[in-house]
Computed example of a mutant assay.
Amino acid sequence: MSTRTFRITVRGAFDGLTPEQHAELAARAPEHDVLRAEFTTEGHLSYDIGSRPFFTFRFLDSGEKEEDILDAGARAELAAEAWLTEHGYGFKNLKSQSQDLSLAPLGKRGRRAAAAALATD
């Protein structure tokens, strides 16, 4: 059985931040900039606290069956909750979206590479 790769995006909003927490997030904003966003197994947090209270965690997970995506999404939500709670940040409206990359359509470059691989077989 082949391994499937899942991308999970967990979104929410900071809630009830103290002025100190807001300042701390603002100070750390460059390392959490959306332009540096990536999907990682640990989860990557991005936000723009100066503009709005929303955040996004991006997780990378895997499984063997299509149904494993549900467990991956649940793990990602729990990991995001744990990080936020550990750092003392209030949050609300936590929602996740998962994508099985084995089912994602290939772009033009991917189709070309797949066709080339088939031609050499």
Rank of each mutant, 00 (worst) to 15 (best):
L70Y: 14
Y89Q: 03
A114V: 11
A116M: 06
S98L: 02
T3H: 08
A113D: 08
E20C: 11
P53G: 14
A115G: 05
G16A: 09
A82D: 08
A74T: 02
T5R: 13
D15L: 12
D71S: 12
G50P: 04
G43V: 01
H44N: 01
G90S: 01
F59C: 10
S98G: 06
A117Q: 14
F39T: 03
A79W: 05
F6P: 03
A26I: 00
T120S: 10
N93F: 12
A114Q: 15
D15K: 15
L84R: 04
S2E: 08
G12A: 03
G43H: 01
F39N: 05
D100L: 03
F91Q: 10
A72H: 01
L35E: 15
R7I: 01
L25C: 01
L17C: 03
E38T: 15
T5W: 10
L60R: 01
S46D: 06
G90P: 00
L70T: 15
L103D: 12
D48E: 13
R52P: 00
H32D: 07
L35C: 12
T41M: 07
N93W: 13
R112C: 04
A72T: 00
A104L: 06
P105S: 14
K65Q: 09
Y89W: 08
R112A: 14
E67Y: 04
D121F: 11
A80F: 01
A13T: 09
S98H: 05
R112H: 11
R52K: 12
F59H: 06
L103F: 09
A29M: 06
R112G: 05
Q97W: 07
E86G: 06
H44T: 03
A13P: 03
G43P: 00
R58S: 10
A79K: 12
L78D: 13
S102N: 13
M1R: 14
A37L: 07
L106I: 08
L84W: 01
P30M: 04
H32P: 03
A27R: 09
D15A: 14
H44G: 00
A80P: 03
G110C: 07
F91Y: 14
A74Y: 01
G90T: 00
A113F: 04
A72K: 00
F6C: 05
P105W: 13
A115S: 12
L103H: 10
H87D: 07
R52E: 13
T40I: 05
T85P: 03
V34Y: 09
L84C: 03
R112T: 07
R36I: 04
D100Q: 02
L101N: 02
K95S: 03
A27K: 13
E64Y: 14
A114M: 12
L17M: 02
E24S: 13
E64L: 15
T3L: 15
D33Y: 07
M1T: 11
D68P: 02
R36D: 03
F55S: 04
L94S: 00
E86W: 05
S102H: 11
P53A: 14
A79I: 04
L103W: 07
L70G: 09
L25H: 00
P53V: 05
S51Q: 09
G12L: 01
A27S: 07
G16H: 09
E38I: 10
V34E: 09
F54C: 11
A13M: 10
A13Q: 14
F14G: 06
R58P: 00
L78E: 15
T56K: 12
R75L: 11
G107F: 02
